[in-house]
C-alpha cells in the first residue's frame, strides 16, 4: 500500500549523511602501491561517502520504480493525502502494518546487500594494495 515509503525515508537520511560526509571528508585514503616491476605508485582508496552513494542509488532507484507500481495500482494519487488508504481507518491500519513489515524488510534487505558490496569492495581493495613479491 505504501511500503516504498520506508526505503524512501532511509534514502533521504542516507543522502543527507552522504552530503555531510562529502563536505567534511574530501578525499579517500592515499596509499602507496608497489607494482610487480618494482616501481611504486600512489593510489587512492574509495572514500566511504562514495560507497554510501551505492546505497542511496539502490534506495532511490527502487523507491521510484515501486512508487510507480503503487500509482499503477491506484494506491498513490496525485492529490492530497496522496495515499488512498488514508481515507479509511481500516485501510490506514493495514497500510501501517504493511509498512512496518514489508517496508522495513525491504529497507533492511537493501542495506544488507549494500553491506555485502562494501565488504566485497574492501576485500578487493585490500588484495589490490597488498605488496606482491617481485619475481626474478
Amino acid at each position: 500500500m505504501a511500503c516504498f515509503l520506508v526505503p524512501a525515508t532511509e534514502a533521504v537520511v542516507a543522502t543527507v549523511v552522504r552530503k555531510v560526509m562529502e563536505k567534511t571528508q574530501d578525499h579517500g585514503e592515499t596509499v602507496k602501491v608497489r607494482l610487480d616491476n618494482g616501481r611504486t605508485e600512489v593510489a587512492e582508496k574509495l572514500p566511504f561517502a562514495r560507497k554510501l552513494k551505492w546505497l542511496t542509488n539502490l534506495l532511490w532507484g527502487g523507491s521510484a520504480l515501486l512508487a510507480f507500481e503503487h500509482v499503477w495500482h491506484g494506491e498513490v494519487v496525485p492529490w492530497f493525502p496522496f495515499l488512498t488508504a488514508m481515507g479509511d481507518p481500516a485501510d490506514k491500519a493495514e497500510m501501517l502494518h504493511e509498512m512496518s513489515t514489508v517496508g522495513v524488510t525491504m529497507a533492511v534487505l537493501i542495506t544488507v546487500v549494500w553491506l555485502g558490496m562494501v565488504a566485497a569492495s574492501s576485500i578487493i581493495e585490500k588484495r589490490a594494495l597488498e605488496p606482491r613479491p617481485v619475481k626474478g
Binding site: C3, F4, P7, W54, N57, L58, L59, W60, G61, G62, S63, A64, L65, L66, T101, V102, T105, M106, L109, I110, V113
Partner: peptide
C-alpha cells in the same frame, strides 16, 4: 549505464521482499 543498474537492482530487491511475503 550505472544508473539503470542501480534502479533495476533496487526495485528487484524490493519486489523480492514483496514476493516472499
Amino acid at each position: 549505464l550505472g544508473i539503470l543498474c542501480w534502479m533495476y537492482w533496487g526495485a528487484s530487491i524490493m519486489w523480492l521482499v514483496d514476493a516472499i511475503f
